[in-house]
Amino acid sequence: MSKYKRYRKIAPCIWNDEKFRKVSNEAKLVIFFLLTHPDLTQLGALRGNMPGLAYDLGVELKAFEEAFQEVLAQGMAKHDGAMLIWFPNFLKYNMPESPNVIRSWLGGFDDLPESPLKNEILQSAKATVDGLSGAFKQAFGEAFPKGFANQEQEQEQEQDKEGTDVPLSKSQGDCDVQVSAPPSEPEAGEEPEEQKEEPAPMPLQPETKPKSKAEKETEFAKAVVTLFNRVLVDEQPEGRKLPKVTKVTAQRVALVKARAKSCAELKQLAGWEAYFQLVSQCSYLLGVVKPWSASFDWLLNVNNFIKVSEGQYLDREAAGDKGGNGLATGLPELDRVKQYARQHGEKGVMGICKSLGFDPALYLKACSAELGAQ
């Protein structure tokens, strides 16, 4: 299945997941084996049987089945008992980056064996797409029109059965179930009207207008906010969660646009995820060092963005020497002043503070922090 996407995202936070940590090392191997299997589709499902998968992994069938049962017991995967395996949370970490990605889902979906679980996969994918913009929804409807038609038809049939006692009949040449009402009695002196079969109504196709530039920018900003909330809120343990973003304002859309304009990598969601992952490695920004934490707006400020991107807030140990115990203050600016002072002595500290644009009093504050940590 080389035509399908072979690159998938496995979030590092999986090692913090309670269910994942409960299973044995053999079960963990099975999870990674299935998530990176060449036949895994973009919906997180694959066709395979236990003997074949055990052979591919190079383990005994009994050992594979026992490990796989651990995975099923924790609800991390589902199995139809035959040939279909699915990871329900797969799309949460592999969101479609464009409507064309959704259109490409069809190929992998058609290759999956027929099963009630296959219908559940389609319903879950639709629920995921329903949370995205109109272009993604339209792409899903184009890729899976038959699925939508069958669902609507089943709903109509259920409603007809519950709401009428009129007999049901099938029109010639059409397998769709339709409701036929009894003919009305003609009044005296009138010729009975010839019963004509009404043509089936044509499905309405919604008119889609091309999105404006502003709409596209807002849509992209919403995707960036979703990434921020996932990486820096949902995936972080207590004590390291940043304030969750609940509104995408015009100001935030402008910030995202400005950063993407100045940094080519940020024109793609992958670049934003890499930036937020970098922030997740900065204890100071996550409020671990002080009762303050960075916000979404703070991280997108141009000056703060440059400092974070250059790694100035990354967790690190200062180069310990005779001048101190090597503990960082958690304030990168102060640490730079302290490092300069150790290399050049006290003389010149005032000058370096001014050249860096810092208040010289910050150096004294850094020294106090270091003494307090001793």
Rank of each mutant, 00 (worst) to 15 (best):
S2N: 14
S2F: 03
K3I: 04
Y4K: 00
I10F: 11
P12H: 14
I14Q: 05
I14S: 06
N25G: 11
K28Y: 00
K28G: 05
K28S: 09
L29I: 14
L29M: 13
F33V: 10
L34N: 01
T41W: 12
N49Y: 03
E60I: 05
E60V: 13
A63N: 05
F64S: 14
V71I: 07
M76G: 02
K78M: 05
K78E: 15
A82G: 12
I85C: 09
N89E: 15
N94E: 12
N94M: 13
S104T: 12
D110E: 06
D111G: 08
L112V: 02
P116W: 08
E120C: 11
L122T: 03
L122K: 12
Q123K: 15
Q123R: 14
A125M: 08
A125P: 07
A125H: 06
A127H: 03
T128Y: 03
V129N: 07
D130S: 03
L132T: 03
G134Q: 09
F136D: 06
Q138A: 13
Q138G: 04
F148S: 01
Q157K: 10
K161M: 07
S169P: 12
V179D: 00
S180M: 12
A181P: 03
A181Q: 09
P182Y: 06
P186L: 13
A188S: 06
E198A: 13
E198R: 14
E198H: 08
M202R: 14
K209S: 10
K213H: 05
K213G: 00
V224N: 07
T226N: 08
L227R: 15
V231H: 01
P237E: 11
G239F: 05
K241V: 15
V245H: 07
V245C: 04
K247M: 13
V253N: 04
A254G: 07
V256L: 03
A258E: 06
R259I: 11
R259K: 01
R259A: 01
K261G: 13
C263R: 14
C263Y: 11
A264R: 01
A270F: 06
E273I: 03
F276E: 13
V279N: 14
S280V: 05
L285I: 09
L286P: 12
L286I: 02
G287Q: 01
D297S: 11
N301L: 04
E310V: 09
Q312G: 14
Y313M: 02
Y313S: 04
E317D: 15
A318K: 08
D321E: 02
D321T: 09
G323P: 01
G323I: 03
K338D: 09
K338G: 10
Y340R: 01
A341I: 00
R342W: 09
Q343A: 11
I352G: 10
I352R: 07
C353P: 00
G357H: 05
G357S: 12
F358S: 05
A361F: 12
Y363N: 04
L364V: 15
L364D: 06
K365P: 10
K365Y: 02
A366Q: 04
C367R: 10
